[in-house]
């Protein structure tokens, strides 16, 4: 569904954000990036990341200790 997927499971702050930023650099405007993380802090971090960079946070879900985010590149 998403144009690209990033597995950030097991990574701690700030690595999920840094890896996501890197992955976004490779996408074009309007493409989406799905991130799967296990760091509970990443929920607030991805909200803040989206707000400050203008990339839209389309989805933010939690299930079974895993957090899934979908970012749409600005």
């Amino acid at each position: 569904m998403a144009d690209q997927e990033l597995d950030a499971r097991g990574l701690n702050c700030p690595l999920p954000i840094l890896r996501a930023k890197k992955a976004l650099n490779g996408l074009t405007s309007g493409q989406t990036l799905k991130i799967i993380a296990t760091d509970p802090g990443s929920v607030k971090d991805f909200q803040a990341f989206a707000k400050q960079t203008g990339n839209q946070l389309m989805e933010s879900n939690e299930a079974g200790g895993e957090y899934t985010f979908v970012l749409k590149k600005a």
Binding site: C13, P14, I17, L18, K21, F49, Q52, T53
Partner: peptide, 11 residues
Amino acid sequence: FILGSTAAALG
């Protein structure tokens, strides 16, 4: 390094 790299990622 955490704040530096993260801030750079935020632009």
